[in-house]
Amino acid sequence: MAKTSRDSGPRPAALIVAREPWLPPEGGQELATALREDVGELLGSLRLRIEPAPNATAADIVRIFQREKRPLLLAFSDVPALPALSVEGALEELVENAVVVGPCADGAVYLLGMAPGLDDDIVGQLAEAACGPAHDALGAVTDAVDVEDLPVVLLPPWTRIGSDKDLSFAENLARLSLMSEDGEEDFLADRLRLWFERHAT
C-alpha cells in the first residue's frame, strides 16, 4: 500500500534569526512577537525542525550548521507572511545547490539557505551577513558566495518590515488576501492579521 509521501530522510532545520522590525509607536512589541511567531508557525507547519535558539549569534549559526549536517534555512523575525512557496522552493533548490538567497528590495535578505557540505568559511561569512545590519545583508551575502563554481540560487524577492511603508504594504496584503476567493488560505500570517485587526486605524 502507499505510504506517506514524505521520504524518511532527516527533516531540514530552520533557525529564526532575531532581527528587529520597524516598530510603530503603539503595539510595537506585540507586532514583533506576532511576526516572530508567524514565521515559526509557518516553518513548523512545513515540517522543518526549528532550532530553539531565539537569539543565535553568527557563531551559534555556524555551530548548529556543523552539528546538523542537513539543509539549514535562516529565516528572519521581521518578515511578514513569509511565503510558503519560497520556503519549499528553497528546500528543493538546496538539493542541487549550495546556497539559496531570498532578497529584499531594501538590501536585506528574507531567507538564506545553506546545503550540507558547504565550506565552513563561507558558512561563517553568511552567518555574519545574516546577523549584521539588515540593509547590508544582501551585499555581504553576495560577497560571500562570490566563489567560483559555487552554485547559488536566487528566490523571488519578498519584503520585510523595515519602515512604516513596509508595514502598510503588509496590511494591504492581508486585506487583499481576505478579499480573495480562497480567503485566508493565501495569507497564513494569522498573528499579524490579528494585530492589524486590533490596531486598525
Binding site: 514524505r6 524518511s8 527533516r11 549550495a98 550540507p116 557540505g117 558547504l118
Partner: peptide, 20 residues
C-alpha cells in the same frame, strides 16, 4: 559536495534527525 571524501561521526543528537 566540494573537496574530497570525509568521514562523518554523528553524535546522538544528530541521530535524532529522524525523530518523526
Amino acid at each position: 559536495r566540494w573537496g574530497s571524501a570525509q568521514i562523518q561521526y554523528d553524535g546522538v543528537g544528530a541521530a535524532l534527525h529522524s525523530d518523526d
